[in-house]
Amino acid sequence: MKTELAVRRVAKKGHLNRNSLVAEVILHAVFIMFALICVLPILLIVGISFTDESVLVREGYNFIPAKFSLDAYRYIADNAQSLLNAYGVTILVTVCGTFVSVLIIAFFAYPLSRKDFKYRNGFTFFMFLTMLFNGGMVPWYLVCTRVLHIQNTIFALIVPYLFNSWYCIILRTFFATSLPISLVESAKIDGAGELKTFFRIVIPLSLPGIATVALFQTLTYWNDWWLPLMLTTSPELSNLQFLLYRMLTNIQMLAQISTGGADVGAALNRMPTESTRMALCIVAIGPIIFAYPFFQRYFIQGLTVGAIKG
């Protein structure tokens, strides 16, 4: 009787006994502060990119431009060639890489998810072992450069990331838990081949899982600077991140880009170096920031599925 009353009281309040107002305010304060710490550095870059160069040199970087200027963006627009090239490389690599890698990973994950596939444990182990032990950077580098000879080709920016054991496990779990085996069996009885079953039934039913892995891979390729650092030397293969990296370490790069190498000194004098650098950073992360709301929803969804099922 007493508990029944208590239950009713709890139900009526709509909440289980909640925190006091003070606690709630403190919680919000902590989160607001941390959220600001996460966002403010990006706003600082935005601020710098819109500030007049002479003000930057005199007063330093600040959030709000003391003197607003679009010079940096104008400069980039006038000398857009290598930036456009880098954008092209990044987009090409991201699109091709994501598409092919998702296909390869899904192809590998599917047999491993099939309980009627006799050797699935063997193949799973074959993959799992690579997560525990790897040969490290030097043999990997030698395989890329001395065996596959992919250095200084566009393949260097795609092929090494094509397979990912971790995402393969996520997808295998997704297939195993979200596809009723009877569905695959009935498709087989209806005379559909394995591939047809895979593309017509398995993939459409697993779209959330596929989308999560695709997003992870998109991010991997878009944010990559490691492969160009390791495997390329030619500027034409610079993707966005690598262009930015070189820009930060070597300011002369900026001027070289605009003049094609001739008369760097004069070009350096003309250009708003500090603001241009930051403007380039904004131009490069722009798409990520715009896609972010969409991205992170799927990400969180995918992670949630992984955490609960895995």
């Binding site: 296909l103 390869i104 990973i105 192809f107 590998f108 599917y110 047999p111 099939r114 596939f117 193949f123 074959f126 993959m127 690579t130 032990f133 790897n134 040969g135 490290g136 030097v138 043999p139 990997w140 030698l142 395989v143 065996v147 596959l148 092929v159 090494p160 094509l162 397979f163 054991s165 393969c168 081949g193 394995e194 591939l195 895979f198």
Partner: peptide
């Protein structure tokens, strides 16, 4: 019995061999 399943494993196997197993031997 399942030739297609093995075929599906092939590209992944190739990647694992090239970028993981050969480098393992390479140490």
């Amino acid at each position: 019995k399942n030739p297609v399943l093995f075929l599906m494993l092939l590209p992944g196997m190739a990647c694992l061999l090239l970028f993981n197993y050969i480098p393992m031997a390479g140490i």
